[in-house]
Write a protein that binds this DNA or RNA. Structure first.
Length: 217
DNA sequence: AAGACGATATACT
DNA sequence: GTATATCGTCTTG
């Protein structure tokens, strides 16, 4: 009776399923649904693109240099939402993985809106097509109406405003991998995972590497 | 106390 | 293709 008037067809993911290495959690999350309810209504999306971030051994991770007030949720139990603010105007959302005390998370980069399309459109009026609504981490976070106050929300709690649901399973053979978007370090690890969809964001190389071409020689 | 720099989106040449 | 808005967080003095 948790979901007001709109019972989900899919079961909710458990904390135990997510308390695994971020790379395994990332693959698990592809095809899963994320459902966000607020006063304005409910939006549900199907995840098609994610990235794994680890802890002290991952120079691209927010947790590479230890625990701070910003990243502390990543050190907590799996299945919680880690929301952070970036570039002065955007929020991005992650699903915390691994166990309590060991940092790890999966960045949500792309999704298809499967329910609440009108509310999603109203939240992202600039989108030129429905496929673009949640294409990119900040757009995805935007259509769900997530911001600072959602940091730390438990996605495995049936009464939570944001819930993570098992979708139709994605076969391993359908999963594509590559380096993470916009990171200038650890480009050797293919920790970006996606399935074929128009809502997968376009690849962009890490800042310093791509910025150099015009200015030098 | 101050400065540098983003796990980006969008507009523009 | 690249230029830039915009500000919280972290690093350094």
């Amino acid at each position: 009776m948790s979901v007001a008037g709109n019972p989900s067809l899919f079961r909710q993911l458990s904390r135990a399923e997510l308390a695994v290495d971020p790379i395994d959690a990332a693959k698990l999350l592809l095809g899963c649904h994320l459902e966000s309810t607020s006063d304005a209504g409910t939006v549900r999306i199907r995840l098609v693109e994610v990235e794994a971030y680890r802890g002290g051994d991952d120079p691209a991770s927010h947790c590479y240099r230890g625990k701070t007030s910003r990243n502390e949720v990543m050190f907590g139990p799996a299945g919680h939402l880690y929301v952070y603010f970036v570039y002065g105007m955007h929020f991005c959302a992650n699903v915390v993985s691994l166990t309590d005390g060991v940092p790890g998370a999966v960045l949500l980069r792309g999704a298809e809106v499967v329910d609440g399309v009108e509310l999603a459109r109203s939240r992202r009026p600039a989108a030129r097509s429905d496929a673009e609504l949640a294409k990119g981490p900040a757009r995805l976070t935007g259509v769900l109406g997530l911001e600072r106050g959602h940091n730390g929300v438990d996605l495995t709690d049936p009464d939570s405003p944001v819930r993570l649901l098992a979708g139709d399973p994605v076969p391993e053979s359908a999963i594509r991998t590559g380096p993470r978007v916009g990171v200038a370090v650890a480009m050797d690890v293919p920790w970006r995972f996606w399935v074929d969809s128009p809502s997968v964001s376009t690849y962009r190389r890490g800042g310093k590497a791509s910025r150099r071409s015009t200015t030098s020689r």
